[in-house]
Amino acid sequence: MLIDQKMKMADVVLHDPTLVPVINRFGIHLGFGDQTIEEICKTHGLHVQFFVITLNAFHDKLYFPTEQLQSFKASLLIDYLQKAHRYFLEDKTPEIADLIERTLREDDVNKTTYGLIKKFFNEYREEFAKHIEREDQIIFPYVLKLEKALEAGTAEEQLLHKIQTHPIVEYEAEHEDVEAKIFDLKNIIIRYLPTPNNDALWYQILREIFTLEKELAEHARIEDLILIPKVEAMEKAIKGGN
């Protein structure tokens, strides 16, 4: 289903509750009564089109935004992506680490085996944090510079050089290894890990890992479908303008 701005926010969430964390990231919380997406965006001072594109990109994996990409500022998108990064780093991954820690404290679990899972997950977290840091410190500032240059109508030599040598497409393939690790973790848990007596805890870990994987895939889709095409267009405009 395609989501549009005339729809009631409540209906959209009833249809797909996994959109809740996305909506939260925009500062919108449950309890929106009968308001439409458009009305809610107005009260929160949000860019309607950007909000709707983001919801759709999360909701439908075949969704492909087309012409409206130029209608909002890149800084808006960067702000959103940074919030998502913090959610992964500060909420999601610590939650899973904590669950693994709790499992390790159970009496009947094999400490060596679960110790390995803990180590694996910690390595994953470090790598993931590095990946995010790279985006936060290199890619996002680059995008913001592009936008500034476009607004000013002039670009510094250094920036022009960077467009030539490190265009945004080069960053595209970066997500993959982080994704592969999550995939492996699922497989190890499901296929090879002896289940502790506390089934519920074990299941919770598994469920959280699946959720994380899904949310990361959606996040990657936002970057691939919205950020990269938008930045490519900006790069092109600057190159053409000079």
Binding site: T112, F120, E123, A180, K181, L185, N187, I188, Y192, L193
Partner: peptide, 13 residues
């Protein structure tokens, strides 16, 4: 399992 660190966990287990 695809990654070396994943294979390591398997091999140790």
């Amino acid at each position: 399992i695809k990654t070396v660190s994943g294979l390591t966990v398997y091999a140790l287990m």
